[in-house]
Design a protein around this nucleic acid. Structure first.
Length: 863
DNA sequence: TACCTCACG
DNA sequence: ACGTACGTGAGGTAT
C-alpha cells in the first residue's frame, strides 16, 4: 500500500558500474558475465525490496547528443568501452527484454535526460520514484517524490539518496548539483568547470551564494580569491552548468504500464539466466519474479485488499454513550451515509453514520456521531467536513483531518474528490462498496495523505491554511447575508416591463419575431437578413458576443437594443429571480463555498454565487442594493487594493513597481510614465498601462492585448507596447520566464506560502495546450499568493472577532464583507490592520474600508 | 449535454 | 496553421 512506486534504471550507467564492481565472471565457454551478474543481482534486490508497480530502463541512444552539437569535446576524454563490457551490453538488452521491462532511448539525448523526463512524469502521476544508477549526476533529480539508489561498494550494497542525504553529503540540496559541477568540472564528461575550484571551493561558494547565476550577480561580494578564478571563466562556467543540467522534457512516450510477467516470459527469463550460468539467481527467480506473474503488482491486491485492508469488523452502537465506550483514544473517522442536505439548514433527521477506528467500524445514529465530533473534534477524520460543520454551533474548532481538503492541496487541478475514488486511488484497492469499507478507507487515508503532504511539502498549507478555514467557512455559510426578497421581486417586475418594450423594438426592426436569446437566430437576423457588417464566424455560426456587437451598437439601434435586452434578461433571470428564490426563511441568503473548486487556491461560491453580484453598471447595482445589514447592524466591506499587482511586485522585485507601491503612488500612472517617458500622462496612456499591467498577470499575448485595448489597436501596436513594457520593467519578464522554466522542470509552481499547482500540460504535444499551461503557470503564483493572503486574513480576522458580535459574512476574492453592530465600528480599523498584515510582502498592502446599510451604498472609512 | 454569453475578482 | 489573457458559476438555447 502507500503510493504507487516507479523504478527507473539508468541501464548503461548501472552496467558500467557493475562491470568494475563485480569480480570477473564468465560462462564455461568464456563469455564474460560480471556486469550482467551485478546488474541482475541488483535488479532482483529491487524487485524484492522496492516492489515497484512500474519499471522502465533508460538507455543511451547511439550517436551524438544535443550536448555535442554545442560542445564537440563533450565526453571527449572517455576511453573506448572495453570489449568485455561491450558484449555484455548487448546481452543486457536481451535480458531486459526477456524480463518484459520496457526500454526507452531517444536519439540526441542521453539516458540521464530520459531518466529526468520520466521521473518528472512519474511525479505528475503521483508515483514515488526510485532512480537506480551508478552515476551521481542524477542526484539533481532528487526531491520529495524521487530518490536515487546507487551501488555502494559492490553492487548488492546500495545507498539511497533523499534530499536530506544530498544535503548531508554535499552541504547543499539537489537543486545545486549542476552548479556544483559547473564550478568543479567533471573529467569523465570533460566538463571544464572553473580552473582552481574543486570540491571544497565549490561547496563553500554554493552554501554562501546559491546558484552560479547569483554568484555572477553578486560578483563583488565574492571572496577575492574566487573573484580572480571566476573572472575570466564566466562563460565556461555557464556552459558547464548547461552541460551538467539534466533535461526533463525530452519528447518521449511512456505509459507507466503495470510491470507484469506472463508464464512464458518467466520461463524465458529463467532459461536466459541458466544460459548465463547464474545458478543462485535461477534459484531465486521463482520467488522474486513469481509475484509479478499475471496482473502485476497493482492488481494483486484488488481482491485481497478488500478482504484484508478494507475488511472492517462491523459493529453497531445504539447511542453516544455506547459509542464512547466502544472507542479508544486517538483518531477516528466518521462517514455519513447521507450527507446533510443543504436546504435543510435547521433540520435534523435520523440518518446513519459510520465511525471507524482501525479495523473496527460502528454503525451509529447520526446524532451520536455528531456528539462525538463536538466532544473530540481534534481526533476526527472527515471527508468534506464543512457541510457537517454547518449543523454545529458557530466557533467550533477544526477537525483533525479532512481527506477532501488534503487531496485538493496535493492535486488542486483534480475535478473529482469523491471519497470512493480517493480510497481507490491512494490506497490502491478496488473501490469500496459498503459504508463500513468507506469509513475504514477514510481512516486509512489519513495516514497516506499525511505522508504525501509531508513529502510534497504541503503540510503547512494544509494545517496552517486550509484546515482551519473549514469551520470558518461553515460559520459564514450558516450565517448567510440578509437580503430583501421584496426588492428582488419588484426589480424583476420592472425588468420584465422593460424587456417587453425592448423585445418588441428588436422584433420590429428585424421585421419578424425570433428568439433573441438564441445566438444562432440572432446571428442570422443581423448578418444574413439585415446584412450588418463585421460578421465573424464561429464553429457553429456567427459570433454575437459583446465584443462584436458593441462596435455596431452606435450605428444600428437594433444592436444597441439587443445588448440592452441581454443586460436586462441577465439581471432578471440570473440575479433578481434566482436570488429571490434563495432568500431563506431567516431572511438571509446562504451561499456555499467550494474550497476545492479553484486550482489556484481561491475559493469559489455557488448556489448562489455571491462572488459575481453586479457592480459595474448602474442597473446591476440595484441587485447589490438588496443585500443589506441586519437590524441594528451595518455592512462593512474591506478590500485589498491592487493585491495581485503588489504580489507581482514582491515576487519579481521590479524596482520601479516596488518603488511605486512604497511611495503609495498610483501604479498604473507610474507604469504609464515609465513606458511613455513622460511626466504628465494622458488618461488614454494610463488606460493602456493598466491593461499592460493586467496582461502580465494573465500571460500576455499580442493578439489578446490588441483585443482588450479595443477597436483601432492592431496586433503590431500591441506588440510594440509589450516591447516597451518589457524594456522598462525587465524583471517582470525575467520572473515570468523563470516561473515557466520552473513549471517545466518541476512540474508545478509554488506560491509565497508554499502552495503548489501542478501543470501536466506544460509538456503537452500540442503547442496550444502547452502555451495555455504556460500562461496558467505564470499566473498561478500570483493569484495563488493573493488567495493565500485572503485565507490567512480570514483566519486571523476570526481570531480578532472571537467574543465580538461582529461577524464575517462573505469572501469575494480580494474583499471581505462583515456585519458590524451599530456603535461597534471601532473594530473595523483592527480588521483592516489584520488584513494588511496577514502575509507580509516587501511592498505595503493597502486595505480600503467602506461601511453602509447595504452592499451598494457604502461610504469610505478613513483611518 | 454542449455551447454561448456574461456576471464578478 | 491556428487560436488567443488568469480564475470562477450560472442561465439560456439547441441538440
Amino acid at each position: 500500500m502507500g503510493p504507487k512506486r516507479l523504478v527507473i534504471i539508468d541501464g548503461y550507467a548501472l552496467l558500467y558500474r557493475a562491470f568494475f564492481a563485480t569480480r570477473y565472471l564468465s560462462t564455461s565457454d568464456g563469455r564474460p558475465t560480471n556486469a550482467l551478474f551485478g546488474f541482475t543481482a541488483m535488479l532482483f534486490q529491487l524487485l524484492e525490496k522496492v516492489e515497484p508497480h512500474a519499471m522502465v530502463v533508460a538507455l543511451d541512444a547511439p550517436g551524438k547528443t544535443f550536448r555535442h552539437d554545442d560542445y564537440a569535446e563533450y565526453k571527449g576524454t572517455r576511453k573506448p568501452t572495453a570489449d568485455e563490457l561491450k558484449v555484455q551490453l548487448n546481452d543486457a538488452r536481451d535480458l531486459i527484454a526477456a524480463l518484459g521491462i520496457p526500454a526507452i532511448e531517444v536519439k540526441g539525448f542521453e539516458a540521464d535526460d530520459v531518466v529526468g523526463t520520466i521521473s518528472r512524469m512519474g511525479e505528475e502521476n503521483g508515483y514515488e520514484t526510485t532512480i537506480v544508477t551508478g552515476d551521481l549526476d542524477s542526484l539533481q533529480l532528487v526531491d520529495e517524490m524521487v530518490s536515487v539508489m546507487a551501488p555502494k561498494t559492490g553492487v548488492t550494497e546500495t545507498v539511497i539518496y533523499t534530499p536530506a542525504d544530498v544535503v548531508a553529503r554535499y552541504g547543499f540540496g539537489p537543486e545545486f548539483i549542476a552548479d556544483f559541477k559547473a564550478l568543479k568540472g567533471d573529467t569523465s564528461d570533460n566538463i571544464p568547470g572553473v580552473p582552481g575550484i574543486g570540491d571544497k571551493g565549490a561547496a563553500e561558494l554554493i552554501t554562501a551564494f546559491g546558484t552560479i547565476e547569483s554568484m555572477i550577480e553578486k560578483f563583488e561580494e565574492l571572496p577575492a580569491k574566487y573573484q580572480k578564478k571566476i573572472a575570466g571563466n564566466q562563460d565556461q562556467m555557464r556552459k558547464s552548468k548547461w552541460l551538467a543540467t539534466i533535461v526533463r522534457d525530452v519528447p518521449l512516450e511512456y505509459d507507466f504500464a503495470v510491470y507484469k510477467l506472463t508464464e512464458d516470459q518467466l520461463t524465458a527469463a529463467v532459461s536466459m539466466l541458466e544460459k548465463l550460468e547464474f545458478r543462485g539467481l535461477v534459484k531465486k527467480a521463482p520467488s522474486v519474479l513469481g509475484r509479478y506473474l499475471g496482473e502485476g503488482r497493482t492488481t494483486e491486491p484488488a481482491v485481497e485488499v478488500i478482504e484484508e485492508a478494507l475488511a472492517p469488523t462491523e459493529g453497531s452502537c445504539a447511542d453516544y454513550e455506547s459509542l464512547l465506550s466502544a472507542l479508544s483514544a486517538g483518531p477516528y473517522s466518521v462517514f455519513f451515509a447521507a450527507p446533510p442536505i443543504r436546504d435543510d439548514l435547521f433540520q435534523e433527521e435520523i440518518r446513519l453514520a459510520y465511525v471507524g477506528q482501525g479495523k473496527n467500524v460502528f454503525e451509529v445514529p447520526e446524532l451520536a456521531a455528531r456528539e462525538l465530533l463536538q466532544a473530540r473534534p481534534a481526533d476526527a477524520i472527515l471527508h468534506d467536513a464543512k457541510p457537517t460543520y454547518r449543523f454545529q454551533p458557530a466557533g467550533a474548532p477544526a477537525p483533525g483531518f479532512d481527506t477532501q481538503i488534503a487531496a485538493f492541496v496535493l492535486r488542486s487541478e483534480r475535478s473529482n474528490y469523491a471519497l470512493r475514488d480517493l480510497v481507490q486511488g491512494y490506497l490502491e484497492v478496488s473501490a469500496p462498496t459498503t459504508p463500513f469499507q468507506l469509513a475504514n478507507g477514510l481512516f486509512l487515508l489519513k495516514e497516506t495523505l499525511t505522508d504525501r503532504l509531508e513529502r510534497e511539502s504541503q503540510a503547512t498549507v494544509f494545517e496552517g491554511i486550509e484546515l482551519p478555514l473549514v469551520p470558518i467557512l461553515a460559520d459564514m455559510e450558516r450565517l448567510g447575508i440578509a437580503a430583501d426578497r421584496g426588492q428582488f421581486r419588484e426589480f424583476s417586475g420592472q425588468l420584465q416591463t422593460e424587456i417587453a418594450v425592448v423585445q418588441a423594438r428588436v422584433h420590429k426592426a428585424a421585421g419578424r419575431e425570433f428568439t433573441i436569446g438564441s445566438p444562432k437566430q440572432l446571428g442570422e437576423v443581423l448578418f444574413d437578413e439585415m446584412k450588418l457588417p463585421g460578421a465573424q464566424k464561429t464553429k457553429t455560426g456567427y459570433a454575437t458576443g459583446v465584443e462584436v456587437l458593441a462596435d455596431l451598437a452606435a450605428e444600428y439601434p437594433i444592436v444597441a437594443d439587443v445588448l440592452s435586452w441581454r443586460e436586462l434578461t441577465k439581471l432578471k433571470s440570473t440575479y433578481a429571480d434566482a436570488l429571490e428564490r434563495l432568500v431563506r426563511p431567516d431572511g438571509r441568503i446562504h451561499t456555499t463555498y467550494h474550497q476545492t473548486g479553484a486550482a489556484t487556491g481561491r475559493l469559489s461560491s455557488n448556489d448562489p454565487n455571491l462572488q459575481n453580484i453586479p457592480i459595474r453598471t448602474e442597473l446591476g447595482r440595484s441587485i447589490r442594493k438588496a443585500f443589506h445589514a441586519a437590524e441594528g447592524f451595518r455592512l462593512a466591506s474591506l478590500d485589498y487594493s491592487q493585491i495581485e499587482l503588489r504580489v507581482l511586485a514582491h515576487l519579481c522585485e521590479e524596482p520601479a513597481l516596488v518603488r511605486a507601491f512604497n511611495d503609495r503612488e498610483d501604479v498604473h500612472t507610474v507604469t504609464a510614465r515609465a513606458m511613455f517617458h513622460e511626466n504628465d500622462v494622458t488618461k488614454e496612456q494610463r488606460r493602456m498601462a493598466k491593461m499592460l499591467n493586467y496582461a502580465v498577470l494573465y500571460g500576455v499575448s499580442e493578439f489578446g492585448l490588441a483585443q482588450q485595448l479595443g477597436a483601432g489597436f492592431s496586433v503590431s501596436e500591441a506588440r510594440a507596447l509589450i516591447t516597451q513594457y518589457n524594456e522598462r520593467f525587465p524583471s517582470v519578464k525575467e520572473f515570468t520566464n523563470s516561473i515557466i522554466a520552473e513549471a517545466r522542470s518541476k512540474g508545478f509552481t509554488t506560491t509565497l506560502r508554499g502552495r503548489r499547482r501542478h501543470f501536466p500540460d506544460i509538456h503537452a504535444a500540442r503547442i496550444n495546450d502547452r502555451k495555455a499551461a504556460e500562461r496558467q503557470a505564470m499566473n498561478a503564483p500570483i493569484q495563488g499568493t493573493a488567495a493565500d493572503m485572503l485565507k490567512l486574513a480570514m483566519i486571523h480576522c476570526t481570531e480578532v472577532l472571537r467574543g465580538s458580535s461582529t461577524r464575517m459574512l462573505l469572501n469575494v476574492h480580494d474583499e471581505l464583507v462583515f456585519e458590524v453592530p451599530i456603535g461597534g465600528e471601532d473594530i473595523i480599523p483592527k480588521l483592516q490592520r489584520t488584513m494588511e498584515h496577514a502575509l507580509e510582502l516587501n511592498v505595503p498592502t493597502e486595505v480600503d474600508a467602506k461601511i453602509g446599510h447595504d452592499w451598494n451604498e457604502m461610504t469610505p472609512l478613513t483611518s
